[in-house]
Design a protein around this nucleic acid. Sequence first.
DNA 1: GTCAATGCAAACTTTTTGCAACTCC
DNA 2: GGAGTTGCAAAAAGTTTGCATTGAC
Lengths: 148, 148
Amino acid sequence: MQVAADDLIAVLRAKGLRLTAARRAICQVIADGHDEHLTSAGVHDAAQKIAKQAINPSTVYRTLEVFEQLGVVHHVHLGHGPGVIHLSESESHHHLTCDNCGSTIDVPAGALGGFFEELHASYGFTVNPSHFALGGYCRDCEHSGNLG
Amino acid sequence: MQVAADDLIAVLRAKGLRLTAARRAICQVIADGHDEHLTSAGVHDAAQKIAKQAINPSTVYRTLEVFEQLGVVHHVHLGHGPGVIHLSESESHHHLTCDNCGSTIDVPAGALGGFFEELHASYGFTVNPSHFALGGYCRDCEHSGNLG
DNA sequence: GTCAATGCAAACTTTTTGCAACTCC
DNA sequence: GGAGTTGCAAAAAGTTTGCATTGAC
C-alpha cells in the first residue's frame, strides 16, 4: 500500500500536533522509503537532506516515537545493529534475515496467516506480524557453504 | 538436551584454550541456566556468585564471544534490552515476546517445523529456530486490554 | 617462560532525558 | 500567547577495545 507524506502529515494534523520542517522531512522520508528498511540513523540522514537543514537525532527519535504511538510506524530489530523503521500501513510482512550475509527477505504476512493462527490457538499469543525477524540462512549462503 | 559445565570446559580444553576461574564459572552458569534466558548481565552476575570473586563484564563478553565462535552458544535478541545467551545444544525453541508486558513464551521448534519447511520451500530460506523472537501480545495483555 | 586471559578504564553505539529557547497554530 | 517542538548537552545501557598485568600450562 502506498502512503504519501501528506497522509502522515494529516495524521499529525488530526491529532492537533504541530508541523515543523523536521517533521515534514521525516514524513517524507518515511513515505518515500515505505519499502525500504530505514534505520533511525537513515531517517535522520535523509530527513536532513530533504529539509536542507540540520536536524537533531533526538528530534528524529522523538518524532518516530510520536508516530509509533499514533500507530503509524513500528520499529523492528533485524539484528544487532540499530532498529529499523517500518510503516504500519505498508503491507504487513515478516522478515527473514540471513545470519551470514545480512540480506533480508520480505514474506507477506498472508503467507504466515495460518501459522500465526495456530500459535494463537495453542498459546493464546497474538503475533504482530511485522515485528522482529526470523534468523537463518538464505538460499545463496546455504548453497555456497560459506557459513560463519 | 542436557549440557554439563564439564562439557563446555572440555570444549575449551580441546581448543587449547586456558581455563580460568572466570571461565569455569561462566561454563557453570551457561550449563545450569540451559533452559533460562540469560542476559550477559545475568551471566556476569551469576558467574561472580559461583566464582566468589569479581569478574569483569568484558571478561564475560569475551568469554561468551569465544563460545559463540566455538558454536557452543548463540545470543538472541528478544527485544530492545540486552541480548540473551542460548546454548546451541539446548532444545531448539522459538520465542514469543509480549510487546506489552515483556513476558516470553517458549515454543518448541517442533511446533513450528512445518511452517519453517514451508518457508524453505517458498523462499529457500533456512530458519534458525532459536534466533530472534516473534513480537505480539500475550493472552493476558490482550484480554486485559491494557495495551500500550 | 610464553601466550592467553584478565582487569581497568575509556570509547563506542544507539537511544533517552532535562531544560531552556523557540515557533507553530 | 501557550502548548507542542526543538536543540543541545549530558546520561543511560549495552558492548567493545587498548594496554599493561596476571596467571595457566
